[in-house]
């Protein structure tokens, strides 16, 4: 069953001057962990706000649990959990008060759905009388997740839940999402971090309001049409500069300790050719090896296409 469906959704701001979302269509299956991957300003938040009935689309239609987001917004609000990108709980209320408050306005109680949030809440328990504004970033995210879950939603919308959170907390957060998925909750999550894409079951790569590709992370990687190589030398700054000037190089991007490159022709001797070119430019300790592409490589490839 498709829990979330978008058909040709468009949204513009400032009287049509800014195209935030253009003609976006995708669907999320029940119990799926779906990732919306794209840089800042790609239109992720706009899509989330449309799906959570906070924003009216200019064109197209969307439904959540089979209910139209415009016509049946009241029913949708009862059944979805939304965690905005910005921490949006009451900072002057304590952890427990926030949780109780959100449980009450959904006509339920913390006790009733405690099993769902138990794993997350135990970590918050020692701070339950602390005001939400005084929590650390990771704790805030956990509390926000608890509050979004407290009414046992069927679909969970998480808008950049890991932005600004440390590496350990990020990893914990994704583990929590996996456990929630096992409970049958459909999760739609957005993130600007490409390395988190592989943690989703299916992803949509989005750039300037349009979807570039929708598939499982594995398929997106296998669909990468070129042979990708990683290059390094002692002087990485000059290396990038020289690689960009080399005629045999098709694309070149800095990627951690290496630069990722693709070649214009696929003959096996291009590797030696490149090493010769680089040696001429006085590079030392040149290392060149084939690598499997990551989502980031795919994203950059699709973006430049």
């Amino acid at each position: 069953m498709k829990n979330v469906v978008l058909n040709n959704i468009s949204k513009t701001y400032d009287n049509g001057m800014v195209q935030a979302v253009s003609d976006v269509s995708f669907h999320v299956n029940q119990g799926e962990l779906f990732g919306l991957i794209g840089p800042d300003g790609a239109g992720k938040t706009s899509i989330f706000r449309i799906l959570t009935t906070l924003l009216l689309p200019d064109g197209g239609s969307a439904s959540v649990n089979g209910l139209d987001v415009v016509e049946n917004y009241k029913t949708i609000r009862k059944n979805v959990g939304y965690m905005p990108g910005k921490f949006s709980l009451y900072q002057d209320l304590t952890v427990q008060e926030n949780l109780n408050f959100f449980a009450t306005i959904f006509n339920t109680s913390v006790k009733e759905n405690y099993d769902l949030i138990k794993d997350i809440y135990v970590q918050l328990e020692p701070f339950k009388d602390r005001r939400a504004g005084k929590l650390s970033g990771g704790m805030k995210q956990k509390l926000a997740l608890c509050c979004a879950l407290i009414h046992r939603p069927t679909v969970l919308f998480l808008d950049e839940p890991t932005t600004g959170v440390d590496v350990v907390s990020r990893k914990e957060f994704w583990d929590m999402l996996k456990r929630l998925k096992q409970q049958g909750i459909t999760i739609l999550v957005s993130t600007p971090y490409m390395d988190e894409a592989t943690l989703c079951e299916r992803i949509a790569l989005i750039q300037t309001g349009s979807i570039m590709s929708i598939d499982t992370p594995e398929n997106i990687i296998t669909q990468f049409p070129e042979n990708l190589f990683a290059v390094r030398s002692d002087n990485m700054g000059n290396l990038l500069h020289d690689l960009k000037k080399a005629k045999i190089i098709k694309s070149c991007n800095a990627f951690g300790a290496y630069h990722h490159v693709t070649f214009r022709d696929v003959s096996p001797e291009v590797k030696e050719k490149l090493i010769r070119v680089l040696e001429e430019k006085k590079h030392t300790n040149i290392e060149l090896k084939p690598v499997t592409p990551t989502i980031e490589d795919c994203f950059i490839y699709l973006m430049e296409k």
Binding site: T52, T53, L54, K74, R77, K78, V80, Y82, P84, K86, S88, L89, Y90, F102, I105, F106, N107, C147
Partner: peptide, 9 residues
């Protein structure tokens, strides 16, 4: 916070 409130019934 109004954002969070708005997505409630």
């Amino acid at each position: 916070t109004i954002e969070q409130i708005n997505v409630t019934p």
